[in-house]
């Protein structure tokens, strides 16, 4: 795509594409130093440097989903087995107590894992915003699943726009686009 095309539409969206990880990190750091926020970093892989600069070591809240799922699961396992067994106390093969924890522990364990995993999946979907078919165009770029990195603003305030563009270009972005009418070629096709 041509640079001219990118300059035509000026809007609140702006995106810089980077070919190098250190340049990208420089861009992110400069933006943070300038007090500009509200952008997303695009990358083909999870590099710990990006996650560190963006989230400063805070663990993802998905872990609470796992915990709630696990607790729900173990209780489900316990209640499912013991409450139903108490409803049919006559049916008691093997001569074990009606509510016998050693054998029920197996069911409780499996339910813990099952619910833990399913809740984690739900948490992942919620927090990642999946399925993200409606994601803003500026966050979509086929090169980012290949070997490029990017910084994208969904809604940059108009007064910051020029500063952002300057920072992106100073830190070595190989392409800067504004607006949401960009059309990408498919690489390697």
């Amino acid at each position: 795509m041509s640079a001219a095309h990118a300059e035509v539409a000026s809007g609140t969206r702006i995106k810089g594409i980077y070919a190098h990880l250190d340049c990208l990190l420089a861009g992110v750091e400069k933006l943070k130093e300038a007090g500009i926020s509200g952008f997303q970093v695009l990358s083909p892989l999870p590099r710990h440097e990006i996650l560190e600069v963006m989230y400063e070591g805070r663990p993802s809240p998905v872990r609470w989903w796992t915990l709630v799922g696990g607790v729900t699961g173990i209780n489900t396992g316990l209640l499912l087995t013991s409450l139903t067994a108490s409803q049919w106390p006559m049916i008691n093969p093997g001569g074990k107590p009606v509510v016998a924890l050693p054998p029920y522990a197996v069911i409780m364990f499996e339910c813990t894992i099952l619910f833990g995993a399913l809740f984690t999946l739900a948490g992942l979907i919620v927090h990642c915003g999946l399925p993200g078919f409606g994601l803003d165009k500026s966050l979509q770029d086929p090169r980012v699943s290949d070997d490029k990195f990017g910084i994208a603003f969904l809604r940059a305030s108009a007064k910051d726009l020029e500063r952002i563009a300057a920072i992106l270009s100073d830190t070595g972005a190989i392409e800067i686009t504004r607006g949401d009418d960009t059309i990408y070629e498919v690489p390697n096709a």
Binding site: L25, E29, E49, T171
Partner: peptide, 8 residues
């Protein structure tokens, strides 16, 4: 490896 920001 740990990559630092360019120019840092």
């Amino acid at each position: 490896e740990h990559v630092h920001a360019f120019g840092s």
